[in-house]
Design a protein around this nucleic acid. Structure first.
Lengths: 312, 312
DNA sequence: CATACAACG
DNA sequence: CGTTCTATG
């Protein structure tokens, strides 16, 4: 029982198999729990780039974990307040015909794009809502084996591509890690290819915590989905290709900054989380980076939204 | 559209396929809806039989439509108040190992019996809780083809058998009507057989409204599960065999007395219901009948509980 | 409309 | 723990 209790405090990306049941053995183990969880407080938004340009593009990304439930929890209200130029949603779990009218009619974003899983209803799915119309929009990464689960939307704007992605989870027991590895290779190739045409912004749930600093319990999660060496290496290679993790670029030492907390074990209240959601930038866009925010207090999903300010 | 709206008001035993959506055509059809629904008010409990004996046995039967949800809605609290000698529950939809401790530890009823579906988890299932220990308890009706769905418990008491049953629903589109007909034959045979040994009380969800008086909309439901000629005939044959429908015996003209209302279309508030739950008595027990109650106000399921007072 | 399940995370 | 699905009523 103590072993279970300990593991419960560590958490895991996929929620693990623990049930969080309180044990009778209280005092000994309870003493290890911090009375006050170490929270992360997002600093004030910085609206200017290092080279002195004002941000003229605001992009928000949010894994909503079921768009219909998220709408009921007034996720749209939060988006209205945040008022980004583009809002990217992942894990919508909703066929296009089942979308709530609250979102299909949202007037602030007249240009709306949806991708859903073709086979499994209510699985995966991403969307992109834009204030201004993109030059063009494409779905998937150009490989049939990856493009049936509604995971990627790419919008072309005058000076950059915006890619939003919901990267495949490696699964409990890492049952889908092999698939994930092929995804990582092919997705990276897709991004590199795009980047050669025009610089890009990549946002979304990349389903990996890159370094130990990016999750509360690195030790216990090395064999869990989201923190395997293979997944971390995939992310490293993305950076090696020339993309920049904007949050880590701006806040290289910042600990306790996460974007996901399992619903189990009261993880969010204890800030036992993972940084799985990112904004990555092509090198050409990096000088225009103003800020990369984590909106930890926004509720409505097991992920929180993140926001990018960019001068383009 | 008007056709759908009309059908919605009629309701059906299995809930039908209507969605109850409000139409734009309001005035014409809305006028047909009664402003004040015709409710049924259960008269005061009669605790004495016609031959002047005091009730010394109180039995309650309730289709709980998922015992775990019913426990959360404090169904147990209502049972405590009612305080019958025996409480019979149908559609528990719960394997024995998954039973909430609130019910397995209920001190007022030290003798507890459970029957669950063997194949389909979370389907069907009945239980019987007794203040005093029965002489013996058996499960099913002695035919393998019927006894894998946890539908019948029989308890032998000194002067009678108590049988509780959750009779198979004929299903949407009457897909299981043929099975139901064989059930009705075999169940009747089982009861007749028991009755030759000792008189019996049968209670539970018999999944049929016997006559037109037993449901709000007989006209619209002749082809729906619970009011087909075949199911009604099955019930008639049970009565012809010598059993008595206690509620109808005592209140032969009582309209609007129902024990089930579909959750759809706000049927309960409008009292668009069905009488599907019964207490039937062997002829030998009939002189001891004191009252047969319908507890319409008890919430926690789409059925309400019913209670029998008997002098044995 | 509501209770169960399974799959997934 | 919570969202989706499907089966059942």
């Amino acid at each position: 029982m103590p072993k279970r209790a300990k593991k419960a405090e560590e958490g895991s990306a996929d929620g693990g198999n623990n049930n969080g049941t309180e044990t009778a053995v209280k005092k000994a183990k309870k003493a290890k729990e911090p009375e006050q969880p170490i929270l992360y407080e997002d600093p004030p938004d910085k609206m200017t780039s290092k080279d002195g340009r004002a941000a003229n593009m605001k992009i928000t990304s949010w894994n909503v974990d079921g768009l219909r439930a998220w709408v009921k929890k007034n996720g749209i209200g939060w988006v209205r307040q945040e008022a980004p130029d583009v809002i990217c949603l992942q894990e919508t779990k909703c066929a296009e015909r089942a979308l709530p009218k609250e979102i299909t009619s949202l007037p602030e974003y007249p240009h709306k794009y949806w991708a859903g899983s073709e086979d499994k209803e209510g699985y995966s799915g991403v969307s992109m809502l834009c204030k201004t119309q993109p030059l063009s929009v494409t779905y998937g990464i150009g490989k049939d084996e990856h493009d049936k689960e509604g995971r990627v939307i790419t919008a072309e704007f005058p000076s950059f591509f915006l890619v939003t992605a919901y990267v495949p989870n490696a699964g409990r027991g890492l049952v889908r890690l092999e698939y994930r590895k092929t995804w990582d290779v092919d997705f990276r190739a897709y991004l590199c290819n795009l980047d050669q045409r025009k610089p890009l912004v990549l946002c979304g749930d990349l389903n990996v915590a890159h370094q130990e600093i990016d999750l509360k319990n690195p030790k216990g999660n090395r064999k869990n989905a989201g923190f395997t060496p293979e997944e971390r290496e995939g992310f490293s290679q993305l950076l090696a290709t020339g993309f920049t993790d904007t949050f880590r670029e701006l806040y290289p030492e910042q600990t306790n900054a996460y974007t996901f907390w399992t619903y189990m074990m009261n993880a969010r209240a204890k800030n036992v989380g993972w940084r799985l959601d990112y904004f990555l930038l092509s090198a050409a866009l990096l000088p225009g980076l103003c800020d990369s925010k984590i909106r930890s207090t926004a509720m409505g999903s097991d992920h929180c939204p993140i926001t990018l300010y960019l001068a383009v």
